[in-house]
C-alpha cells in the first residue's frame, strides 16, 4: 500500500527558484527510505510537501490517499495526526517537561485526558527515556532531546515518521543511538522517510535511498541495482555531523 505518492511534482518558490522538478516516487507501508543529496537539492522540500507545509506548484502529492493539492485546512490537520515529524533542531518547548512536550501532541488533538498519561509513558519507554519524563529539555543531552522529539512524533501512532536531518546536531554516539531507534520504530511497522547527509549511515544499511540533485531525483535504489548507487559522488564537505 502506498502511503506517500509523488507524481511529476515540481515546487518553485517565488524568490528561491526551482526547488524540485519532475519528482516521482512512492513510499509504501512499513518502508524505510533515506533522502540524500547535497544542501539545496530538495530533500527538505520533499518532506515539507509530505507534511503539507508546502503545496506542489505542479504534479501531485498524495498522502494516505488524499491529494495534498486539494486538501482543506481541516484535512491537513487530520492527515498530520497520522504523520510523525522530527527536526534537526528538536523543536521542543523549553518551558515544559519531556512528558508535557509529548502530552502536548495528544492534548492539542483532543485525546481524552485519561488516555494521555499511559500513552506518554509507553513512548517514553519506547525511546529509552522512561526515567527522564520530568526533566526539562535544557537538562537533557542533544541525543536525549531528539529522543523526546521522536517520542512526541510517535505518540499519535503515525503511519509515517518524517525525519529531517534528525542526527545533524548530534555526535557520533548519539547518532548511532537515534538511528537504531528509528530502525526499531520501522521494525515495529511505521514507515520512515529520513533526510540525511550522513553517508556512513546509508552505507551501513541496505535501506532504500532516494538521491536528489538540483531538485531532481537522480537515483532511487528501488529502481536501480545497488551496484550502480552513485552515493560516493557526494563530496565529503557536504557531510553535516557537527556535534552540539
Amino acid at each position: 500500500m502506498s502511503l506517500v505518492r509523488f507524481l511529476n511534482v515540481a515546487k518553485e518558490y517565488q524568490r528561491g527558484g526551482v526547488a524540485l522538478s519532475h519528482a516521482s516516487f512512492q513510499l509504501h507501508k512499513g518502508e524505510f527510505a533515506y533522502l540524500t543529496g547535497p544542501s539545496g537539492s530538495g530533500k527538505s522540500t520533499i518532506l515539507k510537501l509530505i507534511y503539507m507545509e508546502e503545496r506542489p506548484t505542479a504534479g501531485d502529492v498524495w498522502v494516505s490517499g488524499i491529494s495534498t493539492r486539494e486538501a482543506s485546512k481541516k484535512e491537513v490537520s487530520m492527515i498530520r495526526r497520522h504523520l510523525g515529524i522530527v527536526f534537526q533542531d528538536f523543536r521542543l518547548l523549553e518551558d515544559r517537561t519531556a512528558e508535557a512536550n509529548i502530552a502536548f501532541a495528544l492534548e492539542v488533538t483532543g485525546t481524552p485526558t485519561d488516555m494521555i498519561r499511559p500513552r506518554v509513558a509507553r513512548v517514553l519507554t519506547q525511546v529509552g527515556l522512561a526515567s527522564k519524563g520530568t526533566s526539562y529539555p535544557r537538562e537533557l543531552s542533544g541525543g536525549e532531546q531528539q529522543r523526546i522529539a521522536i517520542a512526541r512524533a510517535l505518540v499519535n501512532d503515525p503511519y509515517v515518521l518524517i525525519a529531517d536531518e534528525p542526527t545533524g546536531n548530534l555526535d557520533e554516539r548519539a547518532t548511532r543511538g537515534i538511528f537504531q531507534l528509528l530502525r526499531d520504530i520501522n521494525t515495529a511497522g511505521t514507515a520512515v522517510i529520513m533526510a540525511t547527509h550522513n553517508l556512513e549511515l546509508i552505507r551501513r544499511t541496505e535501506y532504500r535511498t532516494i538521491e536528489l540533485n538540483h531538485g531532481r531525483v537522480v537515483f532511487d535504489s528501488v529502481e536501480t541495482p545497488p551496484a550502480e548507487k552513485p552515493i560516493e559522488a557526494i563530496a565529503p564537505d557536504q557531510h553535516d555531523e557537527t556535534p552540539i
Binding site: 490537520s77 498530520r80 495526526r81 518547548l93 488533538t109 499519535n156
Partner: peptide, 16 residues
C-alpha cells in the same frame, strides 16, 4: 514556536 508545533502535530486552527 508553540503555535508551529501545534500545527505540525495536527491541531486545527480553531483549537490553536
Amino acid at each position: 514556536e508553540e503555535i508551529a508545533i501545534m500545527r505540525l502535530v495536527g491541531a486545527t486552527n480553531g483549537f490553536i
